[in-house]
Design a protein around this nucleic acid. Structure first.
Length: 1157
RNA sequence: GCGCGUAUAGCUCAGUUGGCUAGAGCGCAGCUCUGAUAAAGCUGAGGUCCUUGGUUCGAAUCCAAGUACGCGCACCA
């Protein structure tokens, strides 16, 4: 059965869409699963994609890896799960839904149905579910388009099912949520779940606490207004502490002032008042970033701190005193050790506020907890102002060495407060606005700069403001909405990870698991990174005061907030429920329905209510090694598929997010088993110039644009330009050939590059084979007698090497190694050597051949057929579409109906011939050298030459000259090839000065040097120059100063490489010249044929004439040859009307041709 | 500040266990070839393989220090 003709210009994206249809039509994926059912398992665990937006090209990188490795292990006979997952719950979705609904705050959410919080939350949660379903479906379609073979949900009926019943997994499924419950229960059993009352970073817009993991995402360099403030000391008239803060709003809640007892403080007198300030900071250059002032080298090594353009540099504190003092000046009147200052009382900056008058702190709920826990005596903030010790945490690297301490507004402040019995004053509500009790500030937002103005005005009015300045520092922002974070006293729920910087507790258990998994690529040191995170991380904050997410299964006693229980399953909840079960039943375990359930405290008999918090979304993603593998519902299944053999995700951030959650939860759930064996991390997709992709800058590319639609990106100058669709296989190759450890620049420029060097080349090889094969009626199903040539055996031998590389690369999760080797094979071996060399064999006319000739032709066809079909299979995991397109045309009826149903090739060692490979490499090198020699002689390839002579340096070259002399003759267009076996070298070398660079060095000695070089041994000189400069007439000269030229004897041109020397006879005899002209004539006629739209096999009648005797002589001498090459069957004597003029070696030739049949 | 990583041509990057004259693609200059044409080949210019020192017969490769950049951690009153 002959092949379908291959069109040279293929629309790859269109072909890909056809293959998608084909796969559905022939049920390729279903057949693959059936084929592998019951075979050894290879377990892949998908990291869930956030189902919140359409896919971008950055998602396609990981999904390409996932699919490529899945396909490889399927082709090598493994059963797979093919389950892909969606990340559904969390703030990402809430924020988008808020935008959709036009909501600005939590209050808006709770008022969606006016006056009915419960209905509002229900409405909002439903909107979140809807959004997830919508985009999960969009992403499903897009993933299918990428060629990602998974058990997708495709039909409306499938999407109408609950998330638990679909093929893909959804982290919002009941299974997933309840499995997390069982995890939390297990943690609670071990006493690791606790309620933390602490100052945490807080986003006022989202109304949530920000966990340690999340905070890392949001640091930005920003400007704040910092203030130096006077705290007047009681019992010491006209004496002040000088404190510094970058968050003026916290001054309202000042309770203490922390010093370092070991530091020395100065007493500075200015205009009748005395200021205390640490000695070490007084003259310090504050633009140099921190450094130990103890060390003398510190100043030398100090670095400029990061700063923003346009913000004035900081003054030293001394300068501030100078400028305030004016002519009067200031004076340092004494020093005092910090420890002597401890306990001094002072007047706070805002003691008139009601909030400062409340015993045990403020507001009331805070005060009641403080009282209950006994953190401080029954005093108000205003009554508590005094100097405390902050120990070594108070340094002289910033500020004044006296730290304003507001235990309700700062993490360390809170700790110091507890240690020193200071009551916390917590000024802001969950939106970041001041509570009642803060006078005129009440209702103002803490991040608002008008609030800072109000604070400064109030301080000025009391003469407490010493100075303000514009200060630049890295400050945390909400990773999602970019709002500045505030530190706020909150209660959140945590999992105790054990003591920091130890290998004890849960932390240490996870570390043991980390030691059991393989992190790839090695250069990333993934294990060390993961261990580093585990070593330093704080307790895991699992709560979030929001609406859409895992409902934390924690029920707290309505009357005793210290008593709580963790529920581990739906069944347990049902059993414990004393209220609300009927209303909840039939709903997913989400808000608001689950909130209705009350249980009874078995100890106190009180009702217990669920905390309103939802869970950290990394719990959702981290449990999937259990939930999706049916840990709680089908333990046999779990035993079969756990742990996963392989996971792969973009690594930035994941060592503290998904990888961490997966490892932590597995450690707990399985008592110390690793959740996966191999982890492949990969970096980030950047735009084609290496810049970050941002929607706002217009350089991000949506998946649909890259796959099918095309789009726009900025060009090098930043102007928007359109680009054509790139297609899935081009993307996939781009991703797979890339080093996963480094960022990938994506865009039309790299896509075109990769398409040009790989896809089109592959397509051309395929098209060439098919189009000639079908002309000859080559049918792979009915083999003909064939006699393999060396070159056939050679390409088959090298093909086995490629197969070996492929298997090794896939097995070690290093697909890049395979891709790079495949490119070399395709370009250097197949396209530019095998096919090019074998064109005559493949293009010859069957009818012109005798039996031997036919056998030779079939050998070429069969060899190339084997190569092409093997490549289809080798490439199938990486470029499933193009492989399939080719396979569909190449396969016989006995072959599998999809390339993806084939077995992955195995190297056949019987076909490997190392010596042949070496000899062929030598030949390729000789061809290059011969070409270089021709170039040197400035003789074009069409001009035949008499002889090529080779002086071999290795056995392989020696053999190649003998074995492949025909190839050399043809490639280099020479009449003969000879080995140079004489004792004298084939080439001589001469050295000449590169006067451009050497003249300046030599000066007047130039002539002397030239004379020396004329006599010196150039070959020796060349060797020395490689080692370094060589003294010539007393002046050191480098390689660049001297040109070494190899020279053949007169009339010859020669070059050398690694000892092998090649020379070509450059003398063009009259006979050779005539032959060359004949080739020129043939070339022009062929061009003319092609331009006239003739087919390759068309016969012509030809008219040729020239006034040039030279051309006519060449024409007459080689008339037969010209006729044969151009399929001329008739010569026309009279000039036809449509004569074209062409120029050959400056002479005009008239040409006219006509198709005869 | 601590830790990890990277540094190879104008750009993007390969370079196995140390080995002979360090490579590719793109870009640039020139030439060539062409019925594979969205082609292809050759040559050239362009390299302090970040710097310094060490190990070695031999270092882009191994070791140490330094510099620059990136990442992680800590700090950010």
């Amino acid at each position: 059965m002959p092949f379908e003709k291959v069109e040279p210009q293929a629309d790859f994206p269109a072909l890909e869409r056809q293959m998608l249809e084909l796969w559905v039509r022939v049920q390729a994926f279903e057949k693959l699963k059936a084929k592998n059912a019951g075979k050894p398992r290879w377990s892949f665990l998908d990291g869930p994609i956030t189902a919140n937006n359409p896919m971008g090209v950055h998602h396609a990188w990981g999904r390409t890896y996932k699919d490529a490795y899945n396909r490889y292990f399927a082709m090598t006979g493994h059963e797979l799960r093919y389950q892909q997952g969606f990340d559904c719950q969390g703030l990402w979705v809430e924020v988008e839904v808020e935008k959709e609904l036009g909501l600005k705050s939590k209050r808006d959410i709770e008022n969606l149905v006016p006056g009915d919080i419960e209905a509002s939350v229900n409405h909002f949660v439903q909107a979140c579910k809807d959004r997830v379903n919508k985009f999960a479906r969009v992403q499903t379609e897009q993933s299918i388009r990428l060629g990602f073979w998974m058990n997708w949900d495709r039909t409306d009926a499938e999407w109408a099912k609950s998330p638990d019943e679909r093929h893909s997994y959804f982290t919002m499924s009941e299974e997933n949520n309840y499995t997390i419950w069982s995890f939390l229960k297990k943690c609670h059993h071990k006493g690791m779940v606790y309620r933390g009352y602490d100052v945490m970073p807080w986003c006022g817009r989202c109304g949530v606490g920000i966990s340690e993991m999340e905070m890392k995402e949001g640091y930005k360099l920003v400007e704040h207004r910092a203030a130096f403030v006077k705290f007047p000391l009681k019992d010491r008239p006209n004496e002040n502490l000088l404190v510094w803060t970058t968050t003026p709003w916290t001054l309202t809640s000042n309770v203490g002032a922390a010093i370092n007892p070991e530091l020395t403080y100065l007493k500075v007198q200015l205009k009748g008042e005395i200021y205390y300030v640490a000695k070490g900071v007084f003259k310090q250059n504050r633009m140099e970033s921190t450094g130990d002032t103890e060390e003398p080298e510190a100043s030398a090594k100090a670095k400029r701190r990061d700063w923003l353009d346009g913000v004035p540099h900081l003054n030293t504190i001394e300068q501030m005193f100078k400028s305030k003092a004016g002519k009067e000046g200031f004076s340092i009147i004494g020093e005092i050790k910090g420890k002597e200052m401890l306990g001094w009382e002072y007047v706070g900056p805002f003691d008139d506020l009601p909030a400062q008058q409340h015993a045990f702190g403020f507001p009331e709920e805070v005060a009641s907890i403080v009282e209950q826990r006994g953190w401080c005596p029954a005093k108000s903030g205003a009554e508590s102002h005094r100097i405390i010790t902050g120990g070594a945490d108070v340094s002289e690297s910033e500020g004044t060495g006296i730290v304003h301490t507001a235990p309700g507004c700062g993490q360390i402040d809170f700790t110091w407060g507890k240690e020193n019995g200071l009551p916390p004053v917590a000024p802001i509500d969950d939106s970041g606005n001041f509570y009642e009790g803060f006078g005129s500030l009440t209702g103002k937002n803490a991040t608002d700069s008008a609030t800072a103005d109000a604070i400064f005005d109030a301080l000025k009015a009391k003469d407490r403001l010493f100075a303000t300045e514009r200060y630049v520092h890295r400050y945390p922002h909400c990773w999602r909405c970019k709002t500045e974070l505030l530190y706020r006293l909150v209660d959140e729920w945590f999992i105790n990870m054990g003591p920091k910087q130890t290998e004890d507790g849960f932390r240490g258990d996870i570390m043991k698991v980390v030691n059991k998994v393989t992190f790839l690529p090695e250069s990333l040191n993934g294990r060390a990174r993961e261990r580093d995170w585990l070593w330093n991380m704080g307790d895991w904050m699992i709560s979030k005061k929001r609406y859409w997410g895992l409902s934390l299964p924690i029920w707290v006693d309505d009357k005793d907030p210290t008593q709580f229980e963790v529920i581990g399953s739906r069944e347990e909840l049902k059993e414990r429920a004393v209220e609300g079960w009927t209303e909840f039943d039939g709903h997913t375990p989400h808000r608001p329905w689950v909130d209705k359930i009350k249980i009874r405290n078995r100890q106190t008999g009180n009702l217990m209510s669920r905390i309103p918090d939802v869970g950290n979304p990394w719990l959702d993603a981290g449990i999937v090694a259990f939930s999706t593998m049916k840990y709680n519902t089908d333990r046999d299944y779990w035993n079969n598929w756990f742990p996963a053999d392989f996971i792969t995700e973009s690594f930035p951030g994941q060592f503290r997010n998904w990888f961490y959650a997966l490892l932590a939860m597995s450690t707990m759930m399985s008592d110390g088993l690793p959740p996966f064996k191999n982890l492949l991390g990969f970096a980030t997709v950047k735009d084609q110039f290496g810049h970050d992709m941002h929607k706002s800058t217009g350089n991000s590319i949506e998946f649909v644009a890259a796959a099918d639609k095309g789009g726009t990106v900025p060009d090098a100058k930043g102007n928007s330009t359109t680009f054509a669709p790139i297609g899935a296989d081009v993307m996939r190759w781009l991703y797979c050939r890339h080093n996963p450890a480094s960022n990938l620049n994506f865009g039309p420029i790299p896509a075109n590059e990769v398409r040009g060097k790989f896809h089109i080349k592959l397509w051309n090889c395929y098209g060439f084979f098919v189009n000639y094969g079908r002309l000859d009626g080559f049918d792979p199903a009915t083999p003909q007698a064939a006699t393999l040539q060396d070159i056939d055996r050679w390409i088959l031998s090298d093909l086995q090497g490629l197969i070996t590389t492929a298997r090794q690369a896939f097995e070690s999760y290093n697909v890049m190694a395979f891709c790079l080797e495949a490119e070399r094979f395709l370009d250097d071996r197949l396209s530019n050597w095998y096919i090019r060399r074998n064109r005559p064999r493949l293009q010859s006319n069957v009818s012109d051949l005798d039996t031997a000739g036919l056998a030779d032709k079939w050998a070429a066809h069969q060899t190339l057929y084997t190569v092409m079909t093997t490549l289809c299979k080798l490439f199938a995991p990486v470029i499933p579409f193009l492989s399939e397109v080719m396979w569909q045309n190449l396969r016989t009826h006995q072959d599998p109906e999809s390339v993806h149903l084939c077995d992955f090739p195995k190297a056949d060692l019987k076909l490997v011939d190392e010596e042949l490979s070496k000899d062929m490499d030598a030949l390729l090198n000789l061809v290059t050298l011969g070409g270089a020699a021709r170039n040197l002689a400035k003789i074009k390839f069409r001009q035949p030459l008499a002889e090529l002579r080779v002086q071999p340096a290795t056995e392989a070259v020696r053999r190649a000259v003998e074995r492949f002399s025909d190839q050399l003759r043809e490639e280099l267009n020479v009449k003969g090839v000879r080995k140079h076996d004489e004792t004298s070298p084939l080439l001589s070398a001469s050295a000449k000065l590169n006067k451009k660079t050497a003249a300046a060095k030599l000066g007047p000695k130039l002539k002397e040097a030239e004379a020396y070089l004329a006599t010196a041994s150039a070959l020796e000189l060349a060797d020395k120059l490689k080692l370094g400069p060589v003294e010539i007439v007393g002046i050191p000269l480098e390689g660049g100063d001297i040109n070494i030229e190899y020279q053949a004897k007169a009339g010859w041109a020669g070059v050398a490489d690694r000892g092998t020397q090649v020379a070509i006879d450059a003398r063009v005899t009259e006979e050779l010249a005539k032959e060359g002209l004949a080739r020129d004539i043939i070339r022009q006629i062929q061009d003319h044929r092609k331009n006239s739209g003739l087919n390759m096999e068309d016969r012509i009648s030809l008219y040729l004439h020239s006034d040039s005797a030279k051309l006519m002589v060449a024409l007459e001498t080689h008339r037969e040859h010209i006729a044969a090459e151009t399929l001329t069957t008739q010569w026309t004597q009279m000039p036809p009307a449509d004569v074209a003029e062409v120029k050959i070696e400056g002479e005009m030739l008239s040409v006219s041709l006509r198709k005869t049949s």
